[in-house]
Simulated scan of single mutants.
Amino acid sequence: MDNVTIGNAVGRNIDASARNRASVAEAVHMAPSALSRSISGERTFKSVELAWIADLLGLSIDELVGRKTLPFMAAARAKGSADAHVDEELSGIARTLFERRSGLAQLGVGDAPSFPRIPNNATPEQLADLIVQHIRQFVGDGVLADVDDLASAIETAFGIDVWVRDLPEGIDGYCIHATDDQVYGIIASTRTSPQRTRFTIAHELAHLVCGDNTLNQPHVIRDGSDDPIERRAHTIASGILMPRDKMLQPHSWTAEKIAEQAYKYRVAPSAFAARVKAGIYQEQLPTLAGAWPDALKGDATFAVWKKRNSAERKPKRLIHDLAVAYADKKSTVRPFALVAGFDDLDEARDAARAEAATAA
């Protein structure tokens, strides 16, 4: 979009609000002349200025500038008749993540994303190995048994924001990437089982590492699709959660042995059986709940693990960086409050200051 188109849209939205242009300029820390020149198209709005104005007017940046298309590439995991790429609720969540992270990049807040070098013609198994090794450099080689463990490891190792929350029915996960804006994000649903949520996060990570974009290929996003993009992401996700160098190779697999390993890696026994190509029919295998050791009591039971891993997991890295931007007086508190879930701005200010004082 060119400066004139953006400026005209911003001017119309300001004029349609209850505020005049001078008060808007003051509220978003812009000189009135800079706002005027930007609205006329003579000056380019900074991303953070658009974010501040949008927050002030209660709009998304897309609504503020009149943009109809999504400002990022994306891939999704869905089932049934759900179409993640046209769902307004999901698009709004994705835009929030994009706008906050791209605004921080403009302010110079937060570390740039970091990805391993991907060799040409690498197989899905080799890609999974590379991803696993990259993660281990930051968090070691233990099993990332909880949703938060996996999400935090991805945020730390790759600089990808991970948000696990309620999503529209039928949509398991969504990922976005806009390289020039330093935006990489994964959004996963809490409506599925925790083991499926973990698999979805790994699946979306595979899409991001591979640079997949299915915005114009709605047929690709169906769960169980035969499309090569989805098959590759599925194989990589399996290799992330069940690393090749950790897979035991017993003389023969039994349902009991598979259940034991499924519990260890927090995956469905059927998924583990497929991973090691065990010749056991799915109906012979228990669910993950059935594979859970009976001897475990208290906080170690399946029910407690499921409840803990079915809750919303906010994007911790993004929230921390938004808090830093506020504490450093580079941003208002509204972006932090929106993502962190604060309605009271005074409470948000206190929380932001406290968060900014902690290590990333």
Rank of each mutant, 00 (worst) to 15 (best):
L56M: 09
F98M: 08
V86S: 14
A78N: 01
S40P: 01
T123W: 02
M30L: 15
E26A: 15
D148G: 09
V28R: 04
L50W: 04
G103K: 07
G140N: 12
L56G: 10
L130C: 08
H134T: 12
A82M: 07
L59S: 00
F115L: 14
D87G: 08
L107S: 03
R37N: 10
A75N: 13
L57D: 04
L50M: 11
A51N: 10
A27P: 10
R37T: 00
L50P: 02
T123E: 07
R101E: 03
Q106I: 00
E42V: 00
I131C: 12
D148I: 07
F98Q: 01
A74S: 15
A112N: 11
S38H: 03
V143I: 15
A151F: 08
H134E: 11
F138L: 05
G159Q: 08
Q133V: 06
I160Y: 08
A75T: 02
S38F: 04
E88V: 15
S91D: 10
G142M: 07
H85N: 13
E155G: 06
I61M: 14
E89C: 07
D146G: 13
G92Q: 11
D148L: 06
A76G: 07
A112L: 13
R37K: 14
A76P: 05
G80Y: 02
I118P: 00
L64N: 02
F98P: 00
V65N: 04
L127F: 00
L150D: 11
I135T: 13
L90G: 01
V48C: 05
D161Y: 01
E49Y: 09
S102R: 15
A31C: 03
Q137W: 01
F138M: 12
A145I: 02
D148K: 13
P116V: 12
I131Y: 06
T123R: 10
G80Q: 03
V48I: 15
A84H: 10
K68R: 13
I39N: 02
I93W: 05
V139K: 06
G108L: 01
V143C: 06
R67N: 09
E125Q: 14
A34Q: 11
R67K: 14
F98S: 00
D146V: 00
A153H: 04
D62Y: 05
V28F: 06
